[in-house]
C-alpha cells in the first residue's frame, strides 16, 4: 500500500521557482495537497513491475 507523499508549502514554492512559476501564497497549502495526491497516484503506477521492454504509448507519425 502506498504511503502518502509528504509535500509542504516550501516544497511547492521551491519546485515552482525552477520553472518560473510563482504560487500565490493563498494557494500554496492547496497546491501542496494536490501535488501529494498526484504523487500518490504516481506511486500506484510505479509499484507495478512493468516489463523493461514496455515502451510508452505515445506515438509520433510524421
Amino acid at each position: 500500500m502506498s504511503e502518502p507523499a509528504r509535500v509542504d508549502e516550501a516544497d511547492v514554492e521551491r519546485l515552482a521557482a525552477h520553472i518560473g512559476l510563482t504560487i500565490p501564497p493563498g494557494s500554496r497549502a492547496a497546491v501542496a495537497q494536490h501535488l501529494a495526491a498526484l504523487l500518490a497516484a504516481v506511486r500506484v503506477v510505479e509499484e507495478f513491475a512493468l516489463p523493461e521492454t514496455t515502451e510508452p504509448a505515445s506515438r509520433f507519425e510524421p
Binding site: L15, I19, L38, V45, L50, P51, T54, A57
Partner: peptide, 21 residues
C-alpha cells in the same frame, strides 16, 4: 493545475508505459 506543472517527467513517461501494457 499549479500542482500539475510540478510533476516529474519520469512519472509521466512511466504512466505512458503502463498505458501500453
Amino acid at each position: 493545475l499549479l500542482a500539475a506543472t510540478l510533476l516529474p517527467a519520469a512519472a509521466y513517461v512511466r504512466a505512458q508505459r503502463f498505458r501500453a501494457w
